[in-house]
Design a protein around this nucleic acid. Structure first.
Lengths: 341, 341
DNA sequence: CTGTTAGCGCCTTCAA
DNA sequence: TTGAAGGCGCTAACAG
């Protein structure tokens, strides 16, 4: 494959490599004519700066690493789209890696990204390992946690941008209570996930205060997907249902629940209210109209990229910033007062 | 930030950099003891090979570029997930870039990726520019077109893996005909898109052969999204509807159409049959049950990565491979014989 | 305004 | 089995 280097250009233009470099980069310390001539030759020869070599010197790649558990999840897809768009506006490119906690997948991805000398990392796949990961990589490169808020109580400090999952859980419980529900279920708790633990915790806390009874269905699998929601709901619906409302760990899970309810002949929202979390695009579809808690991916994307770049530039490891974004309730058609007949 | 180099390790271990390099890479030309000692020190010091420097020498990065128009589109999300997974199995990392044709966005992304010295490119954002792009980058780096099949008739040769959109269009028309529809619409044609042109072309060709009447609604926007589908359908439904079936350019568009139909009080499939294209996950939802043409993203991902890596390794630019994957009809609930009452 | 020199971190001959 | 020297492509002093 063609490999025109700065040296070739220099030879062709009858100048030194330094001059070519200057024509390509810094400003005025070069005569306009030679500059133009050199640039013309570059164009003709199809020269393209080897960014690897440049980064080797500058020790900056202008690349950000983004680690997500599952790009096929619409929430993550939207998030990554916004992150990439915003990063590019700021002159950064994003290297996207999918990986879930467990098996050291995350570690090896981080190691790879460090090897690639990315300027920083956005990490969305965090779970309980987070504390371990954070300590391990703390001095190696800037990182901001995405979505998974690290509880202050845990004594861990981290840079993070996240939905306030705990408050989100509270909001859900309060909403159910306001509608009149007293016996409810939280479906899709994944033990390893900080996000889920908080969401569940907030739900539980508010429910307790409001004297509601909560049944928790755990998700043994690694992902919150439609099919996992479907599986869990099927099992739940196998025995007689005493609860009147269900809070799903995510919209994807909620969609699976809807499917299972449909098959089991459980009317929504008459017999069972369903509330999701995320507000993915499909939640708004006319035949779905899923009530849910929305988090603003655009906002999260901007906040996290900005925070990360501040870290990259400042190089200070002594402050930690944690931005919490409160989710907002989106009322659509899947929640209603309990059926009393 | 910490920057342990091979030189530091060498000093610490009391050996030369060459020895460290050997301990890290090639096989047996080093005594097991020194090797172990060196590796231990590397671990202790948190050494991580600078992949940039290595690539500078090897002129191989083991990174593939992937250019997609819109990762928020579920089809692309699924595709990119599969591509990334498969590439990683083969020891490659994927650098994902979103960009649409127009404004030279694609060119600048390709230029960037060349600058990063990716080993090859998967390009899904192709349109009519394809022929221009292909010629321009032909000798610079291996590329395979994804999804957008370049018509043989055009005289362009390219490596490509794509859904057979023309046949897909035919299948749609034939299916409509079999159900009894004679007056149908194709909604969402984007002129600049090879994919859409072919899909539309196949639909039109078969319809003509079968004596069906086709109304084409063009999409003036840059993307096939739910909202664009909604917009187009709204306009279409504003005047009295004579057609009995509608083929949407993609599932996302179809979902928008469903929304508009819902609002306009048009019953599906009784009054209007709707057929999509892609078979995204959400098409299967119980409340959607969209009939559609499915393309296997896993299959496409594997085929395209494999093809690209063959090109990378062989370095031969004289053969072109074009793999066409026939879509399959998935009958769900949005298509039926025309209402005759 | 332009060229020379040195070196970023690593790998690869070639000697020892 | 190990080390020294050179260079991948580029940039950043420092001279001229």
């Amino acid at each position: 494959m063609q490999r025109v280097t700065i040296k070739d250009i220099a030879r062709l233009a009858g100048v030194s490599v330094t001059t070519v470099s200057r024509a390509l980069n810094h400003g005025p310390e070069i005569s306009p004519e030679t500059r133009e001539r050199i640039l013309r030759i570059c164009r003709e020869e199809g020269y393209r700066t080897n960014l690897l070599a440049r980064s080797l010197i500058s020790s900056r790649t202008n690349v950000l690493g983004l680690i997500l558990p599952d790009i096929a999840n619409p929430f993550h897809a939207a998030l990554s789209f916004n992150i990439e768009t915003y990063a590019r506006e700021l002159g950064y490119q994003v290297m996207l890696c999918s990986g879930r906690p467990g098996d050291g997948q995350i570690e090896s991805l981080i190691d790879f990204l460090i090897g690639q000398r990315v300027d920083g990392i956005l990490l969305s796949s965090a779970n309980d390992q987070a504390r371990y990961l954070l300590r391990r990589y703390r001095d190696v490169l800037p990182a901001v946690l995405l979505g998974a808020c690290v509880p202050e109580a845990s004594g861990i400090r981290a840079n993070a941008v996240s939905t306030d999952n705990f408050v989100g859980g509270r909001i859900a419980a309060e909403y159910f209570h306001r509608l009149g529900h007293r016996d409810v279920v939280y479906l899709g708790l994944r033990r390893g996930s900080v996000t889920h633990t908080l969401r569940h915790g907030g739900f539980l806390a508010a429910a307790r205060e409001l004297d509601m009874q909560v049944t928790t269905v755990e998700n043994p699998g690694p992902a919150s997907s439609i099919s996992s929601g479907y599986q869990m709901a099927r099992r739940l619906f196998a025995s007689p249902l005493t609860q009147t409302a269900l809070f799903a760990a995510s919209d994807a899970v909620a969609l699976g629940v809807i499917q299972a309810a449909d098959e089991a002949g459980i009317a929504i929202p008459e017999r069972l209210s369903i509330l999701g979390f995320d507000d993915i695009e499909y939640a708004a579809l006319p035949n779905i109209r899923l009530s849910t808690l929305s988090r603003n991916t655009a906002l999260m994307a901007r906040a996290s990229v900005r925070l990360l770049l501040e870290l990259v530039d400042s190089d200070s490891r002594d402050e930690y910033t944690s931005k919490l974004i409160t989710p907002t309730l989106v009322e659509r058609a899947t929640c209603a007062p309990p059926y009393s007949g």
